[in-house]
Design a protein around this nucleic acid. Sequence first.
DNA 1: TCTGTATGGGGAA
DNA 2: TCCCCCTACAGAT
Length: 362
Amino acid sequence: MPEGPELHLASLFVNKMCEGVLFSGPVRKSEVSKNPDVAFACDAYRISAASRGKEVKLTLTPIKSDDTKAKEAQQPMDIVFRFGMSGFFRFTAEDELPKHAHLCFYSKEKPSRVLSYVDARRFGSWQPHGTWQPDRGPCIMFEYESFRSNIPPFVPARIVLEGLGSDDTCKDKKPLKNDILNRKAVTTARKITMKDEHADLLRLCHTVPMEVVHLGGKGYDPEKADYSEFEAWLQCYYVDGMKSIRDHNGRTIWFKGDPGPMAPKDSKSPKAKKRTKKDEEHDYTSKKKGGGTQSESAGMKKEIKVAKTKKNEQATPPRTAKSLKVNTPPREDKSPARRRKTTKLAEGSRRRSGRLTRQTVK
DNA sequence: TCTGTATGGGGAA
DNA sequence: TCCCCCTACAGAT
C-alpha cells in the first residue's frame, strides 16, 4: 500500500498552511528537475489540496479582481503529484527554501513565503492539468467500499482471502468513505486486529493506514517532525526481534514467526545479503578502479551526472540524531548503540509512514 | 572513501 | 522481469 497516509497528511498540511494565503506570480521549477514546467502565472491565486491513494492534487484558483474581470478570466489549474520515494511539501520563508525544492509557489506578500515540493531523489512526478490516474485502484482510506468490492483474489493470496466476503463483516463499520475516523474507532479496530489472527485482511488494508493518519497532533513536516509516536506505533518494521527476508525483487519483507511456504528459497536477511554479479554491474562507484569496459563508461557517465547534480545543489549540514523510544514490550537488546543503528537506518523510510505496516502478513 | 539501504513507478526486453 | 531514475546517511574499510 505504501504512501497513502503520508500523501493524505501532505494534503492536510497544504490546506492548513495555505489557508488564507494569497499566492502570486509564476510557478517556478528547479532546473535540475525533469518534470514539466507548470505554465501558470497569476497576480493572485489560492492553493488547496486533496489526496486520493498515493496521489495529491493541488488546485490553483485565481482570485478575480477588477483588472482581471476585464480580461479573460483565468481558469483554475490542477496539478497532480506522486511522491516517489522522497517527495513532500514544505512551507517556508523565501530565504529558507529547502534543498531539493523542485516546484515552488510564491506568496504575494513581501518577503514571500513559499510552498515548495521537495524531493531529494527526484523519483516523484507532477502533472500540470493532471487528473487522478485512471488505472489506479480505489483509495484504501477513503474509497474503502470500492476497494473492497472488486478485488480479484490473487492465487497466492487465496488462503488468506478465503472466506472473506465482499462485505465487511467487522462490527466496527465507522471508518468508511470520507467519514472521519475518531480515536475511539481506531481503538476498537485495533482491538479487533489484535484479538483475531485471521482479522479481515482487506479491512486491515484500510484500518492500518487510518491509524497512521490519526496518530495525532505531530503535524506534517518530514524534515523536522517528531516521529517518536509513529515509531512507538510500529510493531514490526525494524523492530528488534522481528525477522526480515528479501524477496526476489530485493525488497525487504518484515514479519514475525514462520515466513510461510512462499518464502524465497535462497532468501537472506538484508545484512547477510551476498553481493551478486548483478549488484556489481549496478554499482557504478566501484568501477573507478577497473579498466575500460563498457560498463565502466556507463558508470562514469553516471558519475558525471552525479557530479553535475551536486554542483547545482548546496550541501546539507548533517542531521542530528533523533531519539527513538519504542514503547513495545521489552526486548533483549536495548543498548543505545543497537538502537541508534536500527533507528538511523530506518529513519528515512520509517518517516514515510504510509508504506509501513504494524504487522507484515506474508 | 566505499558500500549498503531505503523501494515508486516508467519502460524496455 | 528487470533496469533505471536519484540522494542521504550510517557503518565499514
